[in-house]
């Protein structure tokens, strides 16, 4: 299971969080000086779980229509905002500054 403190050591990390399968925030870490809070993180969690569900439907449909493989099961969703990115799997996520974000490292850390 990913460690929230370890996720905070990713370059540019502003917050890390854990959520349940309904998208409700369970636990979080927020970098000092950040204007993020648990209310915002809870919304981000719901957003991540909603988009993973939609992408799962798309992956199922795409694979059955095209015969292509490799999309299902969806194991991550990333939102790219103007300055920050949120990377999440089905239970954990991390928010990073775009300029420093290492998406590969984030997915690797979330897969632990």
């Amino acid at each position: 299971m990913p460690d929230l403190d370890k996720l905070m050591s990713l370059p540019g990390a502003l917050a890390s969080f854990e959520f349940n399968d309904r998208g409700e925030l369970k636990e979080s870490r927020i970098a000092e000086g950040s204007n993020l809070n648990d209310t915002v993180l809870d919304l981000v969690c719901h957003m991540c779980i909603a988009n993973i569900s939609i992408a799962t439907m798309q992956a199922r449909g795409w694979e059955s229509m095209t015969g292509a493989q490799g999309f299902y099961p969806i194991n991550g969703f990333t939102l790219m905002g103007l300055e920050w990115s949120a990377v999440a799997t089905g239970s954990h996520g991390v928010i990073m500054k775009n300029g420093e974000a290492d998406y590969e490292a984030a997915y690797a850390a979330l897969a632990e």
């Binding site: 502003l14 204007n35 993020l36 209310t39 915002v40 919304l43 981000v44 957003m47 909603a50 988009n51 993973i52 939609i54 992408a55 798309q58 992956a59 493989q69 490799g70 999309f71 299902y72 099961p73 969806i74 194991n75 991550g76 969703f77 990333t78 939102l79 790219m80 905002g81 103007l82 300055e83 920050w84 990115s85 949120a86 928010i95 500054k97 775009n98 998406y103 997915y107």
Partner: peptide, 30 residues
Amino acid sequence: SVHMQSEILESFCEDCGLTPSRGWMVSGPG
């Protein structure tokens, strides 16, 4: 969807770097 969700997020998070949404990424195993 992401655009609408980000607008909702923005109303709770002023000066939030996650908004406005610019892009997204979904990953499967391959």
